[in-house]
Design a protein around this nucleic acid. Sequence first.
DNA 1: GCCGTTTTCGGCCCGACTGTTTTCAGTCG
Length: 574
Amino acid sequence: MPVANAEIAEQLDKIADLLDIEGANTFRVRAYRRAARLVEGLPRGVADMLAAGEDLDDLPGIGRDLADKIAEIAKGGHLELLDQLAREVAPGITELLRLPGLGPKRVHLLQETLGIDSIAKLEAAAKAGRLREVPGIGPGTETRVLRAIAEGAAAAPRTKLAVAEQLALPLLAHIAQTPGVLHAQVAGSFRRRRETVGDLDIVAASASGEAVMRRFTSYENVAEVVEQGPTRATVRLRNGLQVDLRVVAEDSYGAALLYFTGSKAHNIALRQLAVERGWKLNEYGLFEGRKLLAGRTEAELYRRLGLATVPPELREDHGEVDAARRGKLPHLVALDDIRGDLHVHTTASDGTASLADMAAAARARGYAYLAVTDHSPRMAMVHGLDARRLGRQIDEIERLNAKLSGFTILTSIEVDILEDGALDLPDEVLRRLDLVVAAVHSRFNLPIAKQTERVLRAMDNRLLTIVAHPTGRLINERPAYEIDVERVLRGAAERGCFLEVNSQPDRLDLADTHCRLAKEIGVRLAISTDAHAPAQLEFIRFGLDQARRGWLEPADVLNTRDLAGLRALLRHRR
DNA sequence: GCCGTTTTCGGCCCGACTGTTTTCAGTCG
């Protein structure tokens, strides 16, 4: 089994942590961290890239040395550097870094002076009141550390975007209503629309920071005020999510928004541009000496740096700065471009609303079409449709369509892809449908070659139109099944079929990096909700987020076509 | 450890808050 990119990133981060504790050159440490972020964001497996003879040295921030080390990890071999570091510095020591108030310097000092190299030893020393013997550490830090350990601070999973949204928007409204607040926005990975967020970052413009801070820290959902100053405060909400608020003057609002939206890598790239021009960029603005050149809006900051405004979703230092300089940023797909939904359920299988109600909801959204895709017989527990019941549904759709004008219900099904790649209904049944959505719902544990082959086999059937939730992952619950996404995408390109971006907040499958890979390979994607209730049609926003993060433009998306355009693409496949 | 029409050496992004301090290092984002 190939070593996953996430595992490689983890090892690189581990090396960075250990080097940091050891007191290595900070730029060397930074190089490892940068490499970890890069590997994490690659759309393809490093192992595959190496097998294809690609040189990792070509990647930005990766030189000969790191390329070799990454290759060594990817081959599953022991990394000599890591072994050596683990001998010099205790291997478990890196977990101490996750505690608040403990960074590399203090962790190093704790090991030197008290021999602490694990959470258990740290806890014992803190309880004995011995941490304060270490210079720079006092009773305050000791208490914080003990509390963090008690709360199990080590494992804080990231919050799904849809959940974060439900917490962020009411809080944002609360802050925006403070007298004197001119603007307020949620920045950070939330604004970049990453699939999960580690915390929330809110930026507000106001002349009186104290008033905003008081209102923020007294918000009813705040469980704890972690830190509070005149311009910055940190709180923890009742569910544990951390929220940072930063208040700036109106003249600096754009700069602060830019800064706190990140990503960190994007900011660094922008600052380098500023430095090249002899300027300085920080959260207060773009400066020439002490003179403010820009800061009120993001747009003017980008303009002064010679760039088109980069949409937040692209700010990952994945080529967007260069594209912005050359005027080649993509025109990202947006909600207005979506003409219909190609994956929804009704009460015929596991949906909660009737066919007529789902169609009415889609029509109310301004859509031109809706493909009804209930489950196939293999999904017995949800009463999947056999040929006869599907036939009845087709009849009902014809009756409804006859009464509707300017809106069309498309006949379809979410048919199971069986273990051998066959589809769960015979071709003569599938042939009657406008389109066929197919998905893997069983045998998630096949070896990667078999799982990949299974989906490729299914795509060999020219009646299959769209592969739904192609990796099967459930965020924070279940990892993707082992499947070679790149091979599936290339297979789809060869066969002229399509893959889905499933918009369910738990799925977001394909993921952003796979969207970008699909675009590079030339596979069009359907952004669908998999709605099981009328209100879930709204989830389309979350699928769009990931599509935008993957640089997709309207032309890359199947359901931006009007009905005639969609039918033309479907015919082409058959 | 990376990188280069200013450089193959000498740079590498920037500021707020905290705690433990008598002027600042470390942490954090």
